[in-house]
């Protein structure tokens, strides 16, 4: 089980959180100018790297705030967490 340090509530167990996907995923636009392939890329294609990744999580059972988590997808080690209003943490080893 992961132990995630919420920037507001401190360390909490993983079942209190919900995963929200990789970041950053930028919405292309304007809609009328976006091709089908670019839209499909935005909706369905993710990097899914082996190693360090930045993810969005929400503390659903706690303060209900969204946060950024830097997690290693191989070891599940968590290096940093940050509020959405803070600069994105680095992912390079």
């Amino acid at each position: 089980m992961l132990r995630i340090s919420c920037p507001w509530c401190g360390p909490r167990d993983e079942p209190e959180f919900r995963w929200g996907g990789e970041v950053p995923v930028l919405r292309p636009g304007p809609p009328e100018a976006v091709s089908d392939s670019a839209w499909a890329q935005y909706l369905f294609v993710r990097d899914n790297p082996k190693g360090w990744v930045r993810e969005r999580w929400v503390h659903a059972f706690g303060c209900r705030q969204w946060l950024i988590v830097v997690r290693n997808t191989v070891t599940h080690e968590i290096r940093a967490t940050a509020r959405l209003t803070e600069p994105l943490p680095e992912v390079t080893p």
Binding site: C9, R12, F61
Partner: peptide, 8 residues
Amino acid sequence: PGRVARTS
């Protein structure tokens, strides 16, 4: 005393 937690 005084500590609050929203949790499961």
